[in-house]
Design a protein around this nucleic acid. Structure first.
Length: 434
RNA sequence: GGCCCCAUCGUCUAAUGGUUAGGACGAGUGCUUUUCAAGCACUAAACCGGGGUUCGACUCCCCGUGGGGUCACCA
């Protein structure tokens, strides 16, 4: 059939890896994976002032965290690819497609390279937008290189994409107006035109391009907030793309199987944290208990009782939230201390009533063997009594006696975790407090 | 402003000429093991406007309007 599909992810290492940039990488990966191809990565660091190694590391770490695969050419930094560019820039001048010109008044000795604009209309097929036409006349003879061997962004892109065998250029919509000038250069160089696809931008709630001023924008921040890659990927994939149908939860592999460019949207999509949280919770629930505990370790070095994991899974939307719960409503293993009035639900329950119920419960629990002291069975035993006597008046004092807290998991779960001895102790203590 | 792109509930979206315009997040209400969550049920919520084309338009065309992107020796 046709040549192997090669997509590209060319970040410029001038900042921490942006969520929009990651979405572009994701789409490039999904398309490549869907077609049995691969995504190549290169660093566009021709801006030497702003490019930094720490940002490169950050980008690579981000991809690793997300689990997005890529390949890299032997020389991946544009700043180190001078030899490659030297093959092509003089050629452009030789064939008359470009010329050297004075840099400007402030720099009389310096010579830049300008592209000789043929002033034509350029039409290209965009995989998501269809036919797009630009008049390149307004571009003038634009500068394509700082000097004979230092190309500027547009030229470097064209040469690198060609050298790396890129077949599909999938990038943000903000690049759509750059496309005609890149096509101009690519034609002058005699390169084949790749397939273009301009994907919609990720927008902030005010509908403008998402940027730092809108808050968390780096994937690191999401990682630090306790989001997991499965959820981030799933959420991002569905921003501006949709496989049709009503399924929303997907793994990366499932997404790759379904991904096609013709289902990519044309309009920008607003990034919504609430829905991301929902995706995170859903994916968190799908982890095994062991895996959940392992991920939690990155946020808390305290050992946690494995029996707590199912409860956390049910409640926490993020891992940070889980840690927080462990420190608050789930922190009931230590000595519970509380205002005795809390036992009475702020005066709603009479002291005699509460203590009668607690005494009755003590008797009920007396017959339960240690081995049978489990949440489900305790519920079976206590439930009929609570129902007969009034659930609120029975269960509230019990829950407070056990947890000492205004909010906590239900009393049966807590008793199961504490065990018979501790449960008896706490109920006795509550009786004394009354 | 020039050029280019876009337009379904508040948000993410389904629908590809014929649906009571569907789902999800969020919101509200109720139920539940009467705390907090979770869960479940229900409710409110959208085709930007105007012209065409057509027996029939959310879907096709045109014009408005609105929004966005881009106009560097940044990428």
């Amino acid at each position: 059939m046709t040549a192997k599909v090669i997509t590209r992810y060319p970040p410029s290492p001038t900042g921490f890896v942006h969520i929009g940039s990651v979405r572009t990488a994701l789409f490039n990966h999904l398309f490549a994976a869907h077609n049995g191809g691969e995504m190549v990565l290169r660093f566009e660091d021709t801006d030497k002032e702003r490019s930094k190694r720490e940002y490169e590391d950050d980008i690579l770490a981000g991809l690793a965290w997300l689990g997005l695969p890529y390949s890299m050419p032997a020389v991946a930094r544009q700043s180190e690819r001078t030899a490659v560019y030297q093959k092509h820039i003089p050629k452009l001048i030789e064939v008359g497609a470009a010329y050297e010109a004075e840099a400007g008044k402030d720099n009389p000795d310096k010579k830049v390279v300008r592209f000789k604009n043929p002033n034509v209309k350029i039409t290209f097929q965009d995989a998501v937008r269809g036919e797009v036409t630009f008049d390149t006349t307004e571009l003038g003879d634009f500068v394509i290189a700082r000097n004979i061997d230092e190309p500027l962004y547009h030229l470097a892109v064209v040469i690198d994409d060609h050298e790396m065998g890129v077949t599909h250029v999938i990038r943000g919509e903000d690049h759509i107006s750059n496309t005609p000038r890149q096509i101009l250069m690519l034609e002058a160089l005699g390169f084949e035109r790749p397939q273009y696809a301009h994907i919609p931008l990720i927008l902030a709630p005010d509908k403008t391009k998402l940027s730092k001023r809108h808050g968390a924008v780096s994937v690191n921040e999401y990682k630090a907030q306790g989001f997991i890659p499965e959820a981030v990927l799933n959420y991002l994939a569905l921003l501006g793309w949709n496989p049709g149908g009503e399924q929303e939860l997907f793994t990366l592999d499932e997404l790759a199987k379904l991904f096609t460019l013709d289902r990519v949207h044309k309009a920008g999509a607003v990034f919504g944290l609430e829905k991301l949280k929902w995706f995170n919770h859903e994916h968190l629930k799908k982890l095994s208990d062991a895996e959940y505990a392992a991920r939690l370790k990155a946020f808390s070095d305290k050992g946690i009782d494995p029996r707590l994991i199912p409860l956390l899974k049910e409640r926490a939307q993020t891992l940070v939230e889980a840690v927080l719960m462990l420190e608050t409503e789930f922190d009931f293993f230590g000595d519970p201390s509380y205002e005795p009035a809390l036992l009475l639900q702020k005066g709603k329950i009479l002291p005699e009533v509460a203590s009668n119920h607690l005494k009755a419960l003590t008797d009920l629990l007396e017959h339960v063997p240690h081995e049978g002291f489990l949440a489900a069975q305790l519920k079976d035993i206590i439930w009929p009594y609570a129902t007969a006597q009034g659930r609120g008046e029975v269960l509230w004092p019990l829950r407070v006696a056990l947890s000492g807290k205004e909010k906590s998991p239900d009393p049966f779960a807590i008793m199961g975790l504490l065990g018979k001895e501790e449960t008896r102790k706490r109920i006795a203590q509550a009786l004394q407090n009354l």
